[in-house]
Amino acid sequence: MNRRDFLTFAAASVALPAWAHDAPASATQAAPPPADAPLVDHHQHLFSPAIARLLDTGAGGPSVIAAKDMIALLDAAGIRRAVLLSTAYVWGSPSRKIEDEYLKVRAENDFNGAQAALYPDRLLAFCSVNPLKDYALEELERCAALPDLKHGLKLHFGNSDVQLELPEHAARLRQVFAAANAKKMAIAVHMRASVSKHRPYGAAQARIFLEQLLPAAPDVTVQVAHLAGTGPGYGDPPSDEALGVLAEAVAAHDPRTKRLWFDAATMANPDITPPQREKLAQRIRQIGADRVLFGSDAAAGKNLRPRESWAAFRQLPLSEAEFKRIAKNVAPYWK
């Protein structure tokens, strides 16, 4: 999710952002879908009725988004498939006190798996969990045994208040990465540390990720969400600093980055400046277009829907060959 820690559901005590009061996801575009559409939207979310209720502070919350809504949005964009990144970690946010927390985490993951199973040729679900919770490894093991959730694990460092500079947090994350690797589960990770809590983030955290976490999961795809940032837009200096460390490692053919991919969800929105577009394009070229995945994030409120998200991405100063390459990229966990 984007909008710093609000769109990532970091704190329940703060009013929901403007998007939360808008209408449900819809796909009413009359024009035919674009011919150059990506094959896969690698960063999407469903909202179960329970999550929608949790985030409704009384002034209105995000609408339920089910698989049928996602399929309509994909059809409007001309996109064949999507990855559903469970938001079960929201129940485990340290900013909340939730009764029967783990039961709700399980139910949220199961909702995503069941919804994906309705369209098995088009939707793939990842389970999710706050990796610092006592039940994290148990839930990972449970998901790995379920046909509809065994494909991958979504981690959200900002919402879970992961601080990689803390040795105990880094050690815990190594455990989680190793457990996912053992179960052959891909890992999609929102690396950006909490913005609302003003946690440190930048080159130091990216080096820990590179030097300590990636070696713990050498055999599975690791997908860095939002190009190591949060969005919307590409203008957060700490995120660019973190991305720079990873991009340099990829460009240098560091073996630890062999299975490292990046999704660009929410980065190329219409509000970024021309210099930000140039910088974003430079980073994509530094990584290599063959490692960049299209993603658009939750189809809620003011977030761009998949069709509009691809149109905004097409405004970057990249070549047609680079756009074509990114549109055709499919993460290995889909193959």
Rank of each mutant, 00 (worst) to 15 (best):
I65Y: 02
A10M: 07
A76L: 09
E241L: 08
H226F: 06
K328M: 15
A107V: 03
A242S: 12
S239I: 00
P147M: 05
D56R: 05
A228M: 13
P200F: 05
I326V: 14
P237I: 04
L124E: 02
S86N: 12
G113L: 04
A331T: 08
Y333D: 01
S194C: 14
L118M: 13
L164A: 05
A264L: 13
F177R: 01
Q175A: 07
A10P: 07
V129A: 05
G60Q: 08
R80S: 11
A145Q: 14
F9D: 01
R3P: 01
D110V: 13
S239K: 07
A116D: 01
S128F: 06
N303M: 10
A66E: 12
L74H: 00
A136V: 09
E138K: 11
V90H: 00
W334P: 04
G113C: 06
A193W: 02
K335A: 14
S160Y: 02
P232I: 12
P218T: 02
Y89E: 01
A27Q: 03
A12L: 15
E308K: 12
D36L: 08
L214C: 12
L214T: 07
A31G: 08
A170C: 14
S93H: 04
A37F: 02
A247N: 07
V90A: 08
A18L: 12
T230S: 15
D36Y: 10
H198D: 15
A72C: 09
W19E: 04
A204G: 04
A206L: 08
P120L: 03
Q29V: 10
L140Q: 07
V189Y: 04
A12G: 14
F313R: 02
G301S: 09
P274Q: 00
L213Q: 07
A216S: 13
K258A: 15
K133W: 09
A35D: 03
L318W: 12
A11M: 11
P38H: 04
A15V: 09
G158T: 03
G61Q: 05
V195I: 14
P147K: 05
W261K: 07
A114C: 09
D254L: 11
H45W: 01
V64Y: 01
A242V: 09
R307C: 01
D75Q: 10
G158V: 02
F323T: 05
F294E: 02
V90E: 01
D290S: 12
N269K: 06
A27M: 00
P131W: 04
I79V: 15
A66Q: 11
E165H: 13
W19P: 08
R314I: 11
A217C: 11
V176T: 06
G61T: 02
T273F: 13
I272N: 01
G235F: 13
G61C: 06
A31P: 01
E241C: 06
I208G: 06
A35E: 03
V176A: 03
V40H: 02
Q115A: 07
R106K: 14
G229S: 08
A125L: 07
D219S: 13
H42L: 10
T8E: 09
F47P: 00
A252W: 00
Q205Y: 11
L214R: 03
D254G: 10
T273W: 14
A216M: 06
S86Q: 11
R307P: 00
A268M: 09
L227V: 10
S86V: 08
L164F: 08
I208P: 08
M70T: 10
A72M: 10
D219G: 10
A12V: 13
A249Q: 04
A331P: 00
R305M: 09
D36V: 05
P17H: 14
A268I: 07
A12E: 11
E139Q: 14
P24Q: 03
